[in-house]
Design a protein around this nucleic acid. Structure first.
Length: 573
RNA sequence: UGGGAGGUCGUCUAACGGUAAGACCGCAGACUCUGGAUCUGCUUAUCGGGGUUCGAGUCCCUGCCUCCCAGCCA
């Protein structure tokens, strides 16, 4: 039994069932694998995990948990040229962070190199594999095309003894890279190109991150994956749609070897609007410096969205909601944002922060006086309690919460108008101080009503249409706040004919705000701590924060009804 | 023009021959010391054409469209 979810793991939202679960249920019913369910998540350590991998992780670990089975973490490290220890470490960190546990079952395909080699020898002895001297270009030429069959390699009928000798010498390092390959004898006329005598081993004089220089021949994915599954006793080998064509080969190797034979099942990989999710493209973004690294908060990588402030539970719930099928579709980014808001709404402490400060002097408030106002920490969670927030004569409010000439349906502050300061007082704007030269609003002069202390309605029953947030100027903590927009301007980056995906990059995906004003308690916010800045959105303290200077990332904005109204107002004009 | 897999609201997913459902998005309203959250209502879909059937999204035939495959990548 495994406990795939860490102790803090919550119950997931119940999601509709799907075909993979149905297949497992059927196998359980027929006792196909002795009632066992054993899956695995098999990343290649050649890049960082992203939100698409999260779907696969949740599926594999989730199914195992559901049926009281196990799920392994296995690195598919058969290509030393692309793989690195840094990636292995990041993947381990990310899967764990998502809330899953593989106990003692951390494996590597490279653990099986000796066994794989023996199996290759076995296939040679059975007359089912041969050493081929064709070059890469020649192999391609012999392979045929989509519509024409291929031709047999001239080396296909080599004697078994010669094959054995040559393969041994390949392993011994007698030949340079690319000089020969070991190929399976399947069928050069198969309409499935994967079956046209696929390469099993290639010569690569490259250092492997785990086996060092022990090997100079490495198995191909197809010759390693199924057997690795078999060795681990996997029952259901879940992979993405593009491997559908490989299943016949997966089955062929396992049958030829006569070993435990898992069921490969293919499902649709995740696609997200305004996002790229291919390792090649993500690598490009990192290497060309379009982003600051794999963990740039604009990246769809697990490490990126973690830094951005996304929660494991929010991501898991998202994965449950997107479903599993064989339809190649694209999920709207809004669904991800919804899942994150849903979780953060329940868990994030509320706090007041002013991003674009406008100074307000409350003329009738006693100079030098400070009051501690009681504020609710989380209206969704009474147990979160309350806190005290200092209030004084000079405060900051959001520039956007004041309009000199308010449009219709705008009911925040304006000359002569009254609003509520959350948890504090009603204030009325009595005058506006402007820069004579530029016309810029420098400061507001207001009056407050002492009868509204705590933000309560006054005895006369007077109402205000709006409540705004504020921070006491003398007590505020200064902060840097980073606002993010989508990394791309198009839903489907790079989809347009002849256009590089990088030309769809959003030049405004990052906006850095300095001089933001926070409630004093946030001065020393720990990196990774999440808050809701009231009326603005969810924010997460960045590791760049220093003791005197917190840095916050906006995880996701709150739903903004006024912004919508304003937008439609502008459009209808 | 070979093979494989798909096609249900704008998006994703359900309906297992018997009233096409849910979520997200959008729109409208209620409520509110967050224009947040919550609640209510509304709009919108079975790729086309034939057939079988009392009854078809589902079964059959036939078109059309989309995705994947010609790495010694995974």
């Amino acid at each position: 039994m495994s406990s795939p979810l860490l102790p803090d793991a919550p119950a997931e939202k119940s999601a509709p069932t799907h075909f993979v679960r149905e297949m497992i249920l059927e196998d359980l019913k027929t006792n196909r694998f002795g009632g066992r369910v054993h899956t695995r998540f098999p990343p290649e350590p050649n890049g960082y995990l992203h939100i698409g991998h999260a779907k696969s992780i949740c599926l594999n670990f989730g199914l195992a948990a559901e049926f009281g089975g196990k799920c392994n973490l296995r690195f598919d490290d058969t290509n030393p040229c692309k793989e690195e220890l840094e990636y292995v470490e990041s993947i381990i960190r990310d899967v764990r962070w998502l809330g899953f546990d593989w106990e003692d079952r951390l494996f590597y395909a490279s653990d099986y190199f000796d066994q794989l080699y023996e199996w290759a020898v076995q296939l040679i002895q059975a007359g089912k594999a041969f050493v081929c001297d064709l070059s890469a270009e020649e192999v391609r030429a012999y392979r045929g095309t989509l519509t024409e069959p291929g031709r047999n390699s001239p080396y296909r009928d080599r004697a078994i003894e010669e094959n054995l000798d040559l393969f041994g010498r390949m392993k011994a390092g007698e030949f340079p890279d690319g000089a020969r390959t070991l190929r399976a004898k399947v069928d050069m006329a198969s309409p499935n190109l994967n079956l046209r005598d696929p390469v099993m081993y290639r010569i690569l004089h490259a250092e492997h991150h785990r086996t060092g220089d022990k090997w100079c021949i490495y198995p191909m994915y197809d010759f390693a994956h199924g057997q690795s599954d078999s060795i681990e006793g996997i029952t259901h080998s879940i992979c993405t749609l593009e491997f559908e064509d490989h299943r016949p080969l997966y089955d062929w190797y396992l049958n030829a070897l006569g070993v435990h034979h898992p069921q490969q099942i293919e499902f649709d990989r995740l696609n997200l609007t305004y996002t790229v999710l291919s390792k090649r493209r993500l690598l490009t973004l990192v290497q060309t410096g379009y982003v600051s690294g794999w963990d740039d908060p604009r990246m769809p990588t697990i490490s990126g969205i973690r830094r951005r402030g996304y929660t494991p539970r929010g991501i898991r719930n998202f994965c449950a909601r997107v479903g599993v099928s064989k339809t190649n579709g694209t999920i709207e980014l809004s669904l991800l944002e919804h899942a994150i808001r849903e979780d953060l709404n329940r868990t994030a402490p509320r706090v007041m922060a002013v991003l674009r400060p406008l100074r307000v002097v409350i003329e009738n408030y006693p100079e030098g006086q400070v009051e501690e106002m009681e504020a609710v920490n989380n209206p969704e969670d009474p147990a979160a309690g309350t806190r005290l927030v200092p209030f004084s004569r000079v405060i900051y409010i959001e520039r956007d919460d004041f309009r000199e000439d308010p449009p219709k349906q705008y009911y925040r502050l304006a000359p002569g108008r009254e609003v509520r300061l959350r948890y504090a007082y009603f204030i009325r704007c009595v005058s506006v101080v402007k820069d004579e030269a530029t016309g810029e609003v420098l400061e507001l002069r207001c009056t407050y009503d002492p009868a509204t202390r705590g933000g309560n309605s006054p005895p006369d029953g007077r109402k205000v249409k709006s409540t705004i947030h504020w921070v006491s100027a003398a007590h505020a903590a200064d902060a840097e706040v980073r606002l993010y927009d989508t990394l791309f301007t198009r839903e489907d980056p790079g989809a347009e004919e002849g256009r590089e995906f990088t030309s769809d990059l959003n030049p405004n995906s990052l906006e850095v705000l300095q001089g933001c004003k926070l409630e004093p308690a946030l001065a020393g916010a720990a990196a990774g701590s999440r808050y809701q800045f009231e009326r603005l959105g969810y924010f997460c303290a960045d590791p760049d924060s220093t003791p005197g200077k917190p840095v916050f990332n906006r995880t996701v904005a709150l739903r903004d009804t006024w912004a919508k109204i304003e937008k439609s107002l502008k459009e209808s004009r």
